[in-house]
């Protein structure tokens, strides 16, 4: 099922939670809404679900005006960050809820409901917990039950609000993979909200990066990581080194010195140079665009992370660089730095 959102505006008092947002979600997609808290991603999700109403704009699900219907009539599965399981019902009854509240005319008989719930509990691999209460389950189990409950109504679309936000790191990783494989199995159009970029890049087919109520970029995980459209996206996704530079013609200047890198067509004026930590090559002194003294080196896994104080900055500018382990780095060593890949964005006031 497709979802189309047009010119959505939502204000809470004077604060614009959503500022003219457009979004199109294709059939069978697994889309991530990624952004810092306050970026409007949860509000957008709630508007699609019918749990919030926009001040202006359109929402259509499968070409049909969704705003004409309340949340209970949209047939949308919603999974909450804090599970929102019915605490006084068993796991079985939680999953059965959506089937039991159907209008009498289309409600299935008890045997069909039981079979369907059993099937869903099997799908989330928790059939052995059917008679437990939510308070007796772990966080990961609760979230899987919440998902089974949302799927019980055979939703046209599935919306997940920070589904792994309340879980610890290890369980979160497991559930991510599990969600991805579940999605490839049932293929329902899904949107999930997250502030965790790693989660968005790892799980989603497409990522929507949001900030301050606006969409900054929409693209595949590779696109948003490799070709960030804005300074915000570059800074938010992946670890970046950010240096304040001046662009004049094709020259890039840092602290008054011209760097030996082209401006790549960036507009003249105060700008920001973005380089990924691992895209900064370390070489012997005098061979690169930048130079600095290594202040500190930490090694873990396949990389070593060096803190480098840039020369000419009076010791004020310290950047962190990820380098492979094959080159021995010493604290106090003077090295040159050469950005392999970089982007220059106009500085925002």
């Amino acid at each position: 099922m497709t979802i189309e959102v047009k010119n959505i505006v939502k204000k809470f008092g004077v604060f614009a939670a959503l500022d003219n947002v457009d979004l199109k979600v294709d059939k069978g997609e697994l889309l991530a809404l990624l952004g810092p808290s306050g970026s409007g991603k949860t509000t957008l999700l709630r508007i699609i679900a019918g749990l919030d109403w926009p001040d202006a704009g359109e929402v259509s699900i499968d070409g049909e005006n969704a705003l004409a219907r309340g949340a209970s009539e949209r047939n949308v599965g919603f999974v909450f960050q804090h599970y929102a399981l019915f605490r006084h019902m068993t796991v079985f009854e939680n999953v059965a809820f959506g089937l039991r509240v159907q209008p009498r005319a289309i409600r299935k008989d008890e045997a069909t409901i039981r079979a369907r719930v059993k099937e869903l509990l099997d799908l989330v691999q928790l059939d052995w917990l059917a008679n437990r209460y939510p308070s007796q389950l772990s966080g990961g189990q609760r979230q899987r039950i919440a998902l089974a409950r949302a799927l019980a109504i055979e939703p046209r679309i599935l919306l997940l609000d920070e589904p792994f936000g309340a879980l610890d790191a290890k369980v979160r990783k497991e559930l991510r993979q599990w969600l991805r494989s579940l999605h490839s199995e049932i293929h329902v159009t899904s949107i999930f909200v997250t502030h965790d970029q790693e989660e968005a890049l790892e799980v989603a087919n497409r990522v929507v990066v949001m900030d301050k109520g606006r969409i900054e970029q929409i693209g595949t995980p590779g696109e948003v990581y490799d070709n960030p459209a804005t300074a915000f996206v570059h800074g938010f996704i992946g670890e970046s080194i950010v240096l304040p530079v001046d662009v004049a013609g094709d020259a890039v200047r840092l602290d008054g010195r011209t760097l030996s890198i082209p401006a790549l067509g960036a507009a003249p004026g105060a700008s920001k140079l973005f380089v990924r930590r691992h895209d900064m090559a370390i070489g012997p002194a005098g061979t690169g665009a930048l130079e600095g003294a290594i202040r500190h080196v930490r090694s873990f896994g396949p990389i070593q992370r060096a803190e480098v104080t840039l020369s000419g900055s009076e010791g004020k500018t310290v950047i962190e660089i990820d380098a492979p382990r094959d080159r021995e780095l010493q604290a106090g060593e003077i090295v040159s730095l050469q950005p392999r890949r970089y982007r220059i964005f106009a500085a925002q006031n």
Binding site: A49, G50, L51, G70, A71, S72, E73, R74, N75, V76, G77, F78, F80, H82, A84, L85, F86, R87, F97, G98, V101, Q102, A146, R149, A150, A152, I153
Partner: peptide, 19 residues
């Protein structure tokens, strides 16, 4: 949240209150 969950699962206002 539980009320919101119930409504998103298709429950009416009265069903949400009583169940």
């Amino acid at each position: 949240q539980e009320e919101e969950a119930a409504i998103s699962l298709g429950a009416s206002g009265l069903q949400t209150f009583f169940r």
